[in-house]
Amino acid sequence: MNTKNLDTFITVTKYNSINAAADALFISSPALQQQINRLEADVGFKLFERSASGIRLTAAGQTFLDGIIRLRSDVESLLTRCRETASLSSCLRVGAILGLQPDLFPRVSGPFFQKYPEIVQKPVMESEDQLFIDLDRGALDVIEYFDCPRAHASGRNFEPLFWEGRDVLMSPGHPLASRKKLTLEDLSGQHIIVYRFDRLPGLREYVEQNYPDIEISEDPRVMDSYTLIRSFEDGHIGLVPPHVGSQFLPLRTVPLEMDMKWPVGFVYREPRSAVLNQFIEVSKEVFSQIIK
């Protein structure tokens, strides 16, 4: 079925006149009539009834017109969705926790752009909960995160890039703040806070089992940097990823030497897009060089 004949048919229904429709389409009336005749031959039924007063749609012709209009609307909607998908296929949306300095994406962004300059990179900073909501509904492609049960829940997958320990975060006046490094033995008698953004699997159990003199608890609050800094006035200490300590000045960070380390990488959902595959491959290349 020729789509040009369908266009002609719709135009004729607007004018209810072969001559008026022919004028609107800048063709002769006999040429337009031939297109209608061919369309009627294709569909196998009459589309118009002709009389001395003009033409009008047959019952079958009206049903056909209604269906064509719905079909065209569906096709336009489909094309819109396809164009949006095509646009997203050249865009990578990377999420990181709001209030924490991203660690992975800044290191990968430059090398990835050099290799794939046509792909737009969109960093997104949101709360931890909102990041996972957006990932699950397809508004994000990947989240910078650490390996924990949440990274594997609800069909999510985790791609590790490297393993890291933790730094001890404390006020500059704390007795341990002048040390160049610390061990868990050094923290005997201290109160350690683990923050909501950094609930490391196995850490609390490990400390409670092996270092019973250390009090360790979790703070479930979502705090901005100012509130977190003020919370150290009571003398407690915190554990944070090494790269975020500079965000909490004037607090002091000291590297913690311990046996436990945790994988850091990206959380995503299957199926992985071609763009996400490219991004993860570049990330692996970048961090393999850093680790060496």
Results as ranks from 00 to 15, higher is better:
53 S>P: 05
81 R>F: 02
30 P>A: 03
86 A>M: 15
101 Q>R: 15
130 Q>C: 11
22 A>S: 13
126 E>R: 10
134 D>E: 11
31 A>F: 00
114 Q>V: 11
120 V>D: 05
43 V>K: 01
38 R>A: 13
125 M>P: 00
104 L>Q: 08
125 M>W: 03
66 D>P: 03
87 S>F: 13
51 S>Y: 05
134 D>H: 11
150 R>A: 14
26 F>D: 09
69 I>K: 00
15 Y>H: 11
115 K>R: 12
106 P>H: 03
94 V>D: 11
136 D>I: 07
124 V>W: 09
108 V>F: 04
150 R>P: 09
24 A>Q: 12
71 L>Q: 03
73 S>D: 14
71 L>K: 02
23 D>N: 08
147 D>A: 11
37 N>E: 14
77 S>G: 11
46 K>Y: 04
86 A>E: 00
77 S>D: 03
141 D>H: 15
16 N>K: 14
137 R>D: 12
113 F>T: 14
154 S>R: 12
42 D>V: 13
91 C>K: 15
32 L>C: 05
81 R>N: 06
150 R>V: 06
78 L>I: 03
45 F>Q: 05
140 L>E: 08
92 L>Y: 11
97 I>K: 08
19 N>D: 12
24 A>E: 10
127 S>C: 06
116 Y>N: 04
147 D>Y: 04
35 Q>E: 12
132 F>Q: 04
105 F>G: 03
59 A>N: 09
96 A>F: 07
18 I>P: 00
46 K>I: 10
150 R>N: 14
87 S>W: 11
80 T>V: 12
111 P>V: 15
117 P>T: 09
32 L>I: 05
87 S>L: 06
81 R>M: 07
143 I>E: 06
43 V>D: 04
41 A>Q: 15
85 T>D: 07
65 L>Y: 02
126 E>I: 08
131 L>F: 08
59 A>Q: 10
88 L>Q: 10
109 S>V: 07
96 A>N: 12
98 L>G: 12
83 R>M: 09
95 G>T: 09
64 F>R: 07
67 G>D: 15
124 V>A: 15
33 Q>A: 12
139 A>G: 05
117 P>N: 01
59 A>C: 13
53 S>C: 13
138 G>N: 05
152 H>F: 13
82 C>M: 10
